[in-house]
Write a protein that binds this DNA or RNA. Structure first.
Lengths: 124, 124
DNA sequence: TAAATATATATCCTTTAAGAATATATGTCA
DNA sequence: TGACATATATTCTTAAAGGATATATATTTA
């Protein structure tokens, strides 16, 4: 696709800073298994919304917010190899929010499909 | 769902400012028919991503950006009833970007479904 | 006909979340 | 001991949405 000279922002759809679904991805990860920041950074790509390692700042920022909101709980773990890790697990409230996220995401997927279907009807 | 005292931001999934798909909705509207800001504000809800009227500032901001990017073209229309309207139509480049948006949205819908399926496998 | 309302565009400020860079500290291993 | 991997944390910038308000014209109605 030709990129016009004047088009600086939003050069291709989805390139903007939006809707990475970081929060539900972290919650899903912790729903599967307790974990910690550095591991989440590397594994969050398995949930499909992040390519490669996540920016560390993003993950730690989210984890702190999630804990402040009571959706996860953490404790330092000094045993084991390497520097101390802050181990996180999901709370009951976290489970509820994850479930709500699933509902939202189903709704969003449906809206996307309707939009796509509308477009297809016009073009065929 | 219980809302904790400390949870201020992001109280419910999707409440944040993100992924409203305003740009593709405007492009789709203009793909259907040439139109103008005030009409788009009222009709954009038909595409599913905005509830009720859109905030005017948002629409006019997008229209200006789209024109600067060469995805739409406009001209003043003084005939007809009411104050003058700035009529917009989609350009060839706009069509290409809309088509790219459709591809992105298909991809996003698929990711969402994979995520949901993963969750369902865990909970059943 | 004057006031109220609807139509129409435009500008500005704030909030939210992501992106990106960098700092700091500890443990491991050649 | 010096390089590298592990691990967390902080800070700055950018993108996009949300929301408020300003301005002007046309139409309706009291």
């Amino acid at each position: 696709m030709k990129i016009s000279k004047n088009r600086k922002k939003n050069d291709h759809p989805g390139s903007a800073k939006q809707e990475r679904y970081i929060q539900p991805s972290i919650l899903m990860g912790l729903y599967l298994n307790p974990s910690y920041g550095y591991e989440i950074i590397r594994h969050i790509q398995n949930f499909g919304f992040v390519k490669g390692d996540a920016p560390p700042g993003m993950i730690y920022r989210h984890l702190r917010q999630l804990e402040e909101d009571g959706l996860v709980r953490s404790e330092w773990k000094t045993e084991g190899t390497g520097p101390a890790k802050r181990m996180y697990c999901i709370t009951e409230e976290g489970n509820e929010v994850l479930s709500a996220w699933i509902g939202y995401m189903e709704n969003q997927a449906e809206k996307l499909q309707n939009f796509i279907a509308m477009y297809r009807r016009l073009t065929k």
